[in-house]
Structures are given as structure tokens and as C-alpha cells.
């Protein structure tokens, strides 16, 4: 699924750096607010879905080699977080939808769990 399609699916009002991943197709998601869980279990190349907008979320996405970051529940990352994500080539999306609603819609659209085996 393209990031632009995900934006539409989740009524994302804001996104940054979509041009960094033109044509990037997302197949899997990993959703967590606990960054240690992302580091331990996320599959590289998955979309990181999180309600944690701290600078550590962007570091985690970089270290765990995620494809992009989707912040849920209206969370807006501060500028240093956006700068870090951009520096690492990571697009950032924001949705007003809750974590539950977000994951439900992504799952229904055919995305799978991005869990490292």
C-alpha cells in the first residue's frame, strides 16, 4: 500500500517527507508505544505505528530500519523529531484516529503484522 493511500485511509491531515519514499509500498505494520518492543520484535521495512512522539521514536525507527512513522491519536512530533526523521530518510504521517481504529483499518486494507521471526 502506498503512503498516499494510507493517508487517505486514515484521514491523515499532515505528512512530511512523502517525497523521500516515492513509490514505496508498505506491506507490514508494527504498532507499539514501547520502543523496546519495536527494537526487539519489529520487522525491517515495516511501518511504525505509534502514539509516542518523543525524539526516541525517530531514533527507534532509524535503528530498527522502519520504512516510515505513523503517529496516531493526533500526536504531533516536535520539529527536532521531524528533522531527525527527515535526516534518516523517513516519511512521517499523522492521523487523528486512535491506535485501535488505525490498526483496524490498516489490517482490513490487507496489511500484515510486521513481526520479525
Amino acid at each position: 500500500m502506498l503512503l498516499r493511500e494510507i493517508m487517505e485511509l486514515l484521514s491523515c491531515e499532515t505528512a512530511w517527507g512523502l517525497e523521500l519514499a516515492e513509490g514505496l509500498s508498505i506491506a507490514a505494520c508494527f504498532a507499539a508505544d514501547l520502543m523496546s518492543d519495536v527494537l526487539a520484535f519489529a520487522e525491517p521495512g515495516a511501518l511504525l505505528v505509534t502514539g509516542l512522539a518523543s525524539i526516541q521514536s525517530a531514533h527507534t525507527a532509524d535503528v530498527a530500519e522502519m520504512a516510515a512513522i505513523l503517529y496516531v491519536a493526533g500526536k504531533r512530533p516536535a520539529q527536532p523529531v521531524l528533522d531527525l526523521a527527515r535526516g534518516n530518510g523517513l516519511p512521517v504521517l499523522c492521523t487523528p484516529l486512535s491506535m485501535f481504529e488505525t490498526c483496524g483499518r490498516l489490517h482490513r486494507a490487507g496489511l500484515r503484522a510486521g513481526v520479525r521471526t
Binding site: 525524539i55 531514533h59 535503528v63
Partner: peptide, 26 residues
């Protein structure tokens, strides 16, 4: 806390200068 992650990022950049497999760097 505000800079937490910068050292890991710096080490990662350094490792990329060597021919180390991406999965190992990860």
C-alpha cells in the same frame, strides 16, 4: 533524554563506513 539515541546513531554511521552487512549493523 533529549539526546538519547544520538550515540547509537553516530556508531551506526561509523559502521556504515565499513563493509558490514546491514543486518549486523541493525
Amino acid at each position: 533524554f533529549d539526546h538519547g539515541g544520538e550515540v547509537a546513531a553516530a556508531v551506526k554511521s561509523t559502521l556504515r563506513q565499513f563493509a558490514v552487512a546491514p543486518e549486523v549493523i541493525r
